[in-house]
Amino acid sequence: MASLKLIRRRIIGVRNTAQITRAMKMVAAARLRRAQENMEKARPYAWKLREVIASLAYRTAHEQHPLLDVREPQRIGIVTVTSDRGLCGSFNINICRSTQKVITEFPDRDVELFTIGKKGQDFFSKRGAKIFHYYPGVFQELEFSQAAAVGSEIVEKYDSGGFDRIYLVYNEFKNVVQQRIITEQLLPIEPQSVMTAGSSNIDYIYEPDPRGVLDKLLPMHVNMQLWRVMLESYAAEQAARMTAMDSATENAEELVAELTLQFNKARQAAITTEIGEIVGGAEALK
């Protein structure tokens, strides 16, 4: 049996760890709340945009729009969204695996990555995947302008024919205990994804013309998609960290209980031995 001193030192160590994991859990919970508020806030804009695009797509020949045009995929881009920090369970590794799965689906095509989040960047750069662009620090200052910057680059690359298809791989925030990995197509925009709302038949005056308005709105839609994905992923990351830290705290507490039991057993054994020795000594003197 380990010495009393050693066990006591371990108990203190594990308690300290539990304190840290508990604090991390609370920080994650606070960030999660803020992330959920941001998601809430982004909704009215997204709805309105979708509604307007739907009614515009309805009255223009949308097949001819480059962002809606389906091309034979020769060069494929994957936007893979991970977190900057670890300690959030299987959050990042699941994304990396799903991304790899998408890559293997196109064995003889040129597949390149747009990485958001340090963890995914590290994973894929170590494995020698082709990384087209890494966007660092997105989650340090999560603002719409970040999404707009990524979006405008992707749209430009797509428009100029550099890429024929763009996929998104990210964690969707389902609820606090559940994240779901989503692989979806960002470009070309699938008409049904923007054509859901009932198209209105109001006769607007368009400036410059319906097509011109649509040309500007579709990139805004892409930016909005990316913004939504960034918010979802951030919320999911915080939720995953909360769960991971919660079970870490629980495990630490269990370990402390176990160690305390061991400590008490050792202490009692020591006392028993001592009494035995005293009694034995007194017996010998008789």
């Binding site: 607007y204 005056i205 368009y206 400036e207 308005v213």
Partner: peptide, 19 residues
């Protein structure tokens, strides 16, 4: 500030869309 120049809207404007 519209793409084709500044514009003004007063009450009773016709349905209008621009960038």
């Amino acid at each position: 500030p519209g793409v084709e120049g500044d514009f003004g809207v007063l009450p009773g404007h016709l349905p209008f869309m621009t960038i």
